[in-house]
Amino acid sequence: MKTYYNPDDLARFADISQYDKALADKFFNWYNEVFAEGALSAREKSLIALAVAHALQCPYCIHAYTEDALAKGYSEEQMMEAVHVAAAIRGGASLVHATQMMNRINQLSIS
């Protein structure tokens, strides 16, 4: 079956360095550093990544960070709540723009 997304491609992520090694190296180093223990724990970062993956709807990231969050001992409820946070921000981000629509309505309409 031909699809744009192939599950096997996730394991080939590092291949992106073929066309520009210098930039890819920078990206992977930075990526690894981002997820290291810091002011936020590696465990907390995993849950943030899972939520962001859903906001971006990236199937590779959802695949990887669902497994990572399970491995790091998050419960199903905690993971679902994190996805709701992502969804709420997405929903809110759309809805808050309604104020712009309302401003424009007011601007265009005879008062």
């Binding site: 724990s41 497994e67 491995a71 001992g73």
Partner: peptide, 18 residues
């Protein structure tokens, strides 16, 4: 033991959580 086909996070991280 992980409940499924995945590997576990480091012991110390899970021990703290448990």
């Amino acid at each position: 033991n992980p409940v499924g086909a995945f590997l576990s996070a480091p012991q110390q991280m899970l021990e703290q959580q448990f």
